[in-house]
Design a protein around this nucleic acid. Structure first.
Lengths: 220, 220
DNA sequence: CGAGTGCCGTAACGTACGGTACGGTACCCC
DNA sequence: GGGGTACCGTACCGTACGTTACGGCACTCG
């Protein structure tokens, strides 16, 4: 068998294959070495099977990254009544969701793996993470921003610039610090507070100010 | 000789040792594997010497990270005439300087290395990078922010929070994207524009709006 | 029931690499 | 000049790990 099973190359993973990839994720999160032997032992499968399904080690890691990415997709927030309060609420929810994701051990381990590979290997795990992380959330937030602009609540020229400002206000240096091993404690309360602060700051920067409810300064 | 030479453990590096560490940096930036043999060949020294000077591979990498960190320290910006224009100018300069650093190939390669180590190894390269990168720039920017507050130009309660907002506005997701291999082109013009935008946004968020000199007691 | 298939567990192989040892050379000090 | 020191270049050793091969077991299908 020279051809690696296509079922792993495509997005059709059997239950067993998913279990194997979850074992890889478990190893990553535990900080243990990602050797083929360790994966086989952890997943209770043979190395021969790993090679048959995923081709080689890089294929296994790529499949793992894709597998995790497919699990993260949260539901889209549909636009409902678009007033200033709802907008701020939606932005805050996005922010909290994203902060929760990037501070999770799985995300940290996955990003570390992708970044390690980005330098040397050509199996671009970084591109996969980028496409499913940064870009994916962008495609979900931007419609919200545009809806806010259409409703006259927000004002900006370039959606991408506005979105990146929002990302910056939310994440700040959190992700890089976590990746570097900083013991940063992000409790749900902290995340909620940061998300709300970021949403408020974003509206301060890009809001038209006209439909102003209350409490731009929420430090009461 | 069992004891690794202390001259490498401390911060006293001979010219030759510095040249060796520069060779390590050159390998890192070139994306080549950081094997001891490769370092020895690139630096035209023997592996025995590497082990004598730096103990082991981790010691060599740690010394390299420290060496690069010692080269980055830019001069402090002294406070001069503190009005709104000067503050914005100083903030913009800091932002441009930082963006230039984090987008440099050396910084990217170094952070990738530190992040790779952060998961498994216990020779915490991440802590070194963190201490000399994020924390160091914080200690240089915070006095500026405080000076702005004393002059009545800025208003904030927690200096750390204000600083982190600034960092977020400047860096946004640039660093993580670069680490993941995103082909992001940061020309000097782009950097200058981003730095200016960030400084303006920060002042919008934290500025008092009026550089009133005696405004300390006039908060409603 | 026998052949085929898919998979587990493990042994085996080849190589890369961290770490060590050793010979050779240049330089310093007595 | 002789011994010591510092270093280069290279050969060498042990191990870890990616990859392959093989024996055995359960299940399916004719």
């Amino acid at each position: 068998m020279k051809t690696p099973d296509d079922s792993a190359g495509q997005d059709q993973l059997s239950e067993r294959q998913q279990a194997v990839l979850d074992a890889v994720l478990a190893l990553m999160v535990a900080g243990e070495a990602l050797t083929m032997t360790a994966v086989a032992r952890r997943a209770s499968c043979s190395k021969e099977t790993l090679y048959k399904w995923f081709g080689d080690r890089d294929g296994l890691l790529a499949a793992t990254v894709r597998w995790q990415a497919s699990k993260v997709r949260a539901g889209n927030f549909d636009r409902q009544a678009m007033d200033a309060g709802a907008l701020r609420e939606s932005l805050s929810r996005f922010a909290a969701n994203w902060l929760t994701v990037i501070s999770s051990p799985t995300s940290i381990a996955l990003n570390r793996l992708a970044i390690s590979h980005a330098g040397s290997h050509e199996t671009n795990l970084g591109a996969i993470v980028l496409a499913n992380g940064r870009l994916a959330i962008g495609e979900r937030v931007k419609p919200l921003l545009k809806a806010g602009r259409e409703a006259g609540i927000l004002a900006f020229d370039d959606t991408e610039t506005a979105f990146r400002t929002f990302i910056g206000l939310v994440g700040r240096d959190v992700q890089v610090r976590l990746l570097l091993g900083d013991r940063l404690k992000l409790s749900p309360a902290t995340i909620a507070a940061d998300a709300d602060r970021a949403a408020g700051q974003f509206i301060t920067l890009y809001g038209t100010g006209r439909p102003a409810p209350a409490a731009i300064n929420s430090n009461a």
